[in-house]
Nucleic acid binder design. Structure first.
Length: 278
DNA sequence: AGTTCATCCTGCATGC
DNA sequence: TGCATGCAGGATGAAC
């Protein structure tokens, strides 16, 4: 599933392909993904506008368009883009929408489990209203004191806290497991029991892991690809996620998988023991 | 107010 | 082999 590294790589690839292109037509096959407005208004909003730049806030992809317009795209678990210079002879499965540009190129959005979302917004308030209103900064951007204050106020376990996009954004199930392993913290540890030094370690590890994965094009597990079927390589560097039954690289214990607060959670029972103070 | 849980959806793995 | 069941998960909104 795409998390911060994957979303960053998608944005980079999209910028290379669709920057400066002008929307000519939009075909929406699954209106459910296109929130708040009906598909015809979505099309009307986009047609004739040029894509100036694409960036991201956490896992949200932000298309900045002419006339102060914005389109938001969230890939959820399976969302993928494919770009074609010309109309392709065959289309891939599970196409949810096609964006046609004036120069004849096409951007296809597909998703086998259609959970992704698209929103249209204006520049003046897109950060003030959902879905971006509560999205926090990512680990590389957030101020340490802010991050520490948020954690120190939460009695909730650290794993779901790291997944909470209003605390810090961009971390999903894969990297939460990896960050906690690198920081030697049991996923059930209450966030407010973590010392300042431990929280520093979490943030440092989060930045390192997310940056390294970004450099390697993200993690291609559970079908992630950035653009046009390009896969990342960070899955080869995962230390606990997906490693159930394999030996821990630090202590050779067997990696365990549990279901924690509804999420598959991988950890090393020796390196990540539960402690009262940490 | 904070936290948990069901929901959205479909491909895939498992079990009979 | 074929069918039924269950599981996966990000974010949201309902329920506790």
């Amino acid at each position: 599933m795409p998390e911060l590294p994957e979303v960053r790589v998608v944005c980079k690839s999209l910028n290379e392909k669709v920057q400066n292109l002008v929307f000519k037509k939009v075909e929406i096959f699954n209106p459910k993904l296109f929130k708040e407005y009906d598909p015809s208004y979505f099309q009307e909003f986009l047609i004739g506008e040029k894509i100036l730049k694409i960036s991201n806030l956490g896992k949200n992809i932000i298309y900045f368009l002419t006339n102060n317009k914005i389109m938001l795209s969230h890939l959820r678990m399976e969302g993928k883009y494919s770009f074609y210079e010309q109309k392709p002879k065959e289309t891939l499965k599970h196409i949810q929408a096609i964006f046609y540009f004036e120069n004849g190129s096409e951007l296809h959005y597909r998703e086998s489990r259609p959970f992704g979302t698209f929103h249209i917004r204006y520049l003046n308030n897109y950060l003030k209203i959902d879905p971006l209103a509560k999205v926090a900064q990512s680990p590389g951007e957030i101020d340490f004191e802010t991050f520490y204050n948020r954690l120190s106020k939460k009695a909730l376990a650290i794993k779901p806290t790291l997944l909470d996009q209003s605390i810090v954004s961009g971390i999903g199930n894969i990297y939460a497991d990896e960050i906690l392993f690198a920081s030697k913290i049991h996923p059930a540890t209450p966030s407010n029991l973590l010392s300042k030094d431990k929280v520093k370690e979490i943030l440092k590890n989060a930045i390192e892991i997310l940056d390294k994965s970004t450099e390697l094009g993200g993690s291609s597990i559970n079908s992630y690809e950035s653009l046009n079927k390009k896969e990342g390589q960070y899955q080869n560097f995962l230390k606990v996620h997906t490693k159930k039954g394999e030996f821990c690289i630090k202590c050779s214990s067997k990696i365990e998988k549990i279901k924690f607060k509804g999420r598959g959670t991988y950890f090393c029972p020796t390196c990540q023991k539960q402690k009262d103070f940490i």
